[in-house]
Each structure stands twice: as structure tokens, then as C-alpha cells.
Amino acid sequence: MKTNSGLNVHKAGKIFRAGSRQPRVALEGVSLHLPPGQVGVLLGPSGCGKSTLLRMVAGLEAPTSGALSLNGRAITGPGRDRGMVFQSYTSFPWLTVRQNVAYGLTINGDASSLKEGVVDHFIRAVRLQDVANAYPHELSGGMRQRVAIARTLANHPELLLMDEPFGALDPETRWQMQELLLGIVRKEHTTVLLVSHDIEEALYLGDVVFFLSSHPGRLREVIRPGFKHEVPAGDREALLDHPEYRRLDLHIRRLMSEEGRRAA
């Protein structure tokens, strides 16, 4: 395989066996491809296996069938090439913002990146330069999530993984965070795989949206909002106003409610 082939998920399945309970099929035969430099969004109803799939890509969960690879290398466990941002705030409370952002480089002994000002670059990118020496508990939820994003990006991952990163934020902050993320990702050409259950977020951020259905989790449809090239990058209002946006929005809503009926 080519070395820059992006993320490949091949017939991945996951069955949870917990003690005496009946085995639970979380995912079945999911195959997908995410080219480098693109933002992929995993969208679907709650419990359809989005987090499980993301955790398998991170190497935090092993697939019970199938195979996953990033840029030609098989995924067998967690690694620096796939940094993850969680929904819960994970900035380490005992480290300042700057120390948090430097954490990955420090534990990897990456002295050259530390010297080259990578840490400050990403602190500025998420606009936290004024609180660089503060501890996380002094920050708001949105700021803490920005710390986590900067910390992951400063570590040079080939793929940025995010599990509903803005789910705990208020709508206003969530909006700003989406714009900030999109700006950074476009500038740094980061490949991103993001979990969401919000249609607007998925269509606003995603170059490609993978819609999963539940029981068992399967890839139901791949949606490419290609019309986004017709509106100015990051212009949310123009996007929401586009007829193609409204068509896709309605289409995904129908998929969602079908899933809801199947579950009931």
C-alpha cells in the first residue's frame, strides 16, 4: 500500500462479550476510507457504535474482525500518530496550559519540536496565549477543550480523532469552536475523524460524512457535501442557506428518524 493512503477500515467488526451477559454486536463489517488532509465525520443515532469505531482507530479497542490501517501501517494499539480528544475535559489539572500543550512532546523526548516553538505556535492557534501559565481549573469548558486540541496537534499526529469534542459546550461556544477547529485544520492540512450526532456540525465540518445505522452498527451511507466548494470556506450562513445543504439536512433527518423507528 502507498505510504500516504490515509485511513483504511476494512470489514471491521466489534462484539463485546461482558461476563455472563449475551454478546453484544456493536459494529459489523464496516469498511471506509478517509483520504489524507480530509475531515471525516462519523454520524448516527446514539448507541450505533461511533465511539467504538473511533476507539478502534485510536487503538484503544481491538476489532474482533477485520483490519484497520493508517497510511499503510496496520493499527494494533494506541500511538502518537493518532491523537485523541475526548468529550470530557482531559487537560491534566496539575499542569499549566503551556505544560499541557507540551506534554506529548515532553514524554516523547521531542526536544527539537519543543525548541522550535511548536508549543507556542499551537497555543496561539487556539488563542490561549493570554492564559498560557494558568491551570485548567481556571479556564472555561471551551478553553479546556482548546487546550486538549492544541496538545494533540502539537504532537504532530497523522490523524486527529475527536469524540463529540464540543458536546458538553453551550451552543454559542460550540459554534466558535467549530470555526476555530476548521480554520486550524485547513491551515495545517490535518486529517480528522470526528464523532458527532449533530447534523449541522457534521455538514459544516465534514468533507465526508459516514452515516452509521444501529443494531448492529453498520455503515449505511457515505455523504459528500461537495457543494461546500461553492460557498466561501467556513461561511456558515452561506452554507446553511445553500439548497443542497437543505436537501442533505432533510435526507439525514429522514435517515435518523428511520433509525429511531427501527430502534423502537
Binding site: 494506541p78 475526548f86 486538549a148 499526529p157
Partner: peptide
């Protein structure tokens, strides 16, 4: 898990 995905 965060530390693991940062290469820890």
C-alpha cells in the same frame, strides 16, 4: 487513554 494516544 489521552496519554496513550499522545504516544505515552
Amino acid at each position: 487513554e489521552t496519554a496513550k494516544t499522545l504516544g505515552g
